[in-house]
Write a protein that binds this DNA or RNA. Sequence first.
DNA 1: CTTCTTGCAAAATTTTTGCATTACA
DNA 2: TGTAATGCAAAAATTTTGCAAGAAG
Lengths: 157, 157
Amino acid sequence: MSDAEIETARLKEQFRDFLVAEGLKFTRQRRVIADLFFKADEGHRSLNELLAAAQVEQASIGYATVYRTMKLMTDCGVALEHKFADTGLTLFEPNLEGDHHDHIICLTCGRIVEFEDAGIEALQESVARRHGFEVRKHRHEIYADCVAPDCEYRPVA
Amino acid sequence: MSDAEIETARLKEQFRDFLVAEGLKFTRQRRVIADLFFKADEGHRSLNELLAAAQVEQASIGYATVYRTMKLMTDCGVALEHKFADTGLTLFEPNLEGDHHDHIICLTCGRIVEFEDAGIEALQESVARRHGFEVRKHRHEIYADCVAPDCEYRPVA
DNA sequence: CTTCTTGCAAAATTTTTGCATTACA
DNA sequence: TGTAATGCAAAAATTTTGCAAGAAG
């Protein structure tokens, strides 16, 4: 079992535990969505992309079910919701253990790269404290041009 | 003439110049909106707040006019548009000269404080370069709890 | 069995646009 | 006077919800 598989299993279990604790059910639909979402070969997906992928497994799944399932996942912490600028698009990514990161988004091709920088995090804490705040969470997105050889304009679905 | 007044005048002129350059008109409505927006005793305002303030000057002003005017201001760089998390609310603030800053938002009372940190900026450039990106712009928001004595829950309009 | 979930469609938001009329330069 | 702007109301685009029928434990 690879590390990725272990992590997938952990997230799925965390989701299931949450449902049980809340007296909710781990239905076929939620299983399908969780499986494809945690597999996450590509990290950031919209509700419509998740819906399309889910319908491959079960054609009858509706948008509302995916919407509500992702909300549950976000609530219980196994998924992160991102609303990047310059698109009204909401994207989700699995909340992998110990993998806090922020994002660099290419303004041209939309490519999303993750970064983590302890120095920035530390400065951020310090800045907040100086202003009399206690950091709860943050959003740090860098919009940039990338040097990918295949970088070209790609409209978002 | 105070510094603030000079800056207000500069932004207003920049907006007017832009309109002239584009063959557009500096109408009464745009003047009213620009004046109240650049006055900006409080920095971040929603379209509805701007609309209400504009209607004090001219009752007939409609939402669409404010919407389109703020879009023009954003396009020409005299206004910045922010979509903070946890509220679907879009807020605008004047783009004051040499006043780049990011935001700390209190999760409880909604208070917004501005900060600027050269160290963070530098690290950000460095991180992006390391990943093969050239920074164009960024969004850095810290969500936190504040220590204001009057901090209390305030739903956003 | 009872409760929760689903899927549809409709409602609620928010953002954007078309168009006839008015105002500006 | 011709072009652009306004204000209304309607269209789009999203997000969210109500509800009857179906699944889960």
